[in-house]
Amino acid sequence: MTVTKIIDKTTENLQTLTPIVSGSLDIGAGESQGMRLITRVLGQLQADYPEVSIHLRSGAAGRIANQLADGQLDFGIIMGNQVSSQYSALKLAHTDSWGILLPKNTALAQKAVITPQDLVGQPLIVSEQAMNEHRFQNWWQNVSDQLQIVGTYDLIFNAQLLVTTSHCYALAFDNLVPIEDNSLLTFRPLSPALNESTTLIWSKDRQLSSVAQIFLKRLKSITE
């Protein structure tokens, strides 16, 4: 057998022994810069396994939990420290910080940080999920009954449009809205600071697919 034929035969054997990974990977998440790490792993995964399809679904924690329960999702990404014992969890290094998205031409934009007292009487729109989970209950301190919450939002893209046109303020995570030099909006962090951890969760009652196991292994390798 010639050297060329030996090489061709070896290559054929290796290809036969290497499993073809295919299928779909479904991940539900809220809006967070923590998704940059997730998408980086997903991009490399899809480059290595072209037969894999990836589906990202936006949603609040309650919706993500329901979709994990009925098998629509392989993983969910949630913000905050409360993770139910029914899930396996991997805490990511990224932390989101709450602040105020507001028009540049307002007096409040002159402040370096925003305190609860600064928001008294100001028109606020707030993340509906965060409100339902009472994320700001401790931060409000003793001024909660003096706040003017005029609405809620699910997606910060839509919220920023309302802030721009209605001159209200949005309680939001940092770095979700690009603030350019010519932007009409700016962002100010809260004081005292209010931060949220980011956690990947998956059901303890369901066996992860091969694709999901590979994704999780790769994510763990750069987070643990």
Results as ranks from 00 to 15, higher is better:
residue 117 Q to M: 10
residue 27 I to C: 01
residue 139 W to H: 09
residue 115 T to E: 10
residue 183 S to G: 07
residue 110 Q to K: 14
residue 86 Q to D: 12
residue 102 L to R: 01
residue 168 C to V: 14
residue 52 V to W: 03
residue 60 A to D: 12
residue 103 P to A: 12
residue 117 Q to A: 15
residue 94 H to D: 08
residue 50 P to Y: 02
residue 171 L to D: 02
residue 8 D to K: 15
residue 168 C to N: 12
residue 63 R to M: 14
residue 180 E to G: 09
residue 177 V to A: 04
residue 29 A to N: 13
residue 119 L to E: 04
residue 168 C to D: 06
residue 5 K to Q: 14
residue 40 R to I: 11
residue 213 Q to M: 10
residue 43 G to M: 08
residue 152 T to K: 11
residue 100 I to R: 00
residue 77 I to P: 05
residue 73 L to H: 06
residue 119 L to Y: 02
residue 78 I to W: 01
residue 2 T to P: 15
residue 63 R to D: 11
residue 113 V to F: 08
residue 199 T to C: 06
residue 57 R to Q: 13
residue 122 Q to N: 09
residue 177 V to K: 06
residue 71 G to N: 07
residue 210 S to A: 13
residue 221 S to A: 15
residue 222 I to H: 03
residue 191 S to D: 15
residue 45 L to Q: 01
residue 153 Y to P: 05
residue 84 S to W: 01
residue 202 W to S: 06
residue 106 T to H: 02
residue 187 F to M: 12
residue 101 L to A: 08
residue 135 R to L: 10
residue 132 N to P: 09
residue 187 F to A: 06
residue 158 N to P: 00
residue 54 I to V: 13
residue 17 L to N: 05
residue 31 E to I: 04
residue 212 A to P: 00
residue 89 A to N: 09
residue 144 S to C: 05
residue 46 Q to W: 07
residue 60 A to I: 07
residue 205 D to R: 06
residue 131 M to A: 15
residue 63 R to N: 11
residue 52 V to Q: 02
residue 76 G to K: 02
residue 14 L to Y: 07
residue 1 M to E: 11
residue 5 K to S: 15
residue 154 D to G: 09
residue 119 L to M: 04
residue 118 D to G: 08
residue 192 P to Q: 06
residue 211 V to P: 00
residue 215 F to A: 04
residue 109 A to S: 15
residue 137 Q to V: 14
residue 169 Y to A: 03
residue 106 T to I: 07
residue 194 L to F: 08
residue 137 Q to C: 04
residue 158 N to T: 12
residue 35 M to I: 03
residue 122 Q to A: 10
residue 154 D to Q: 13
residue 204 K to P: 08
residue 146 Q to S: 14
residue 189 P to R: 03
residue 182 N to K: 13
residue 1 M to D: 11
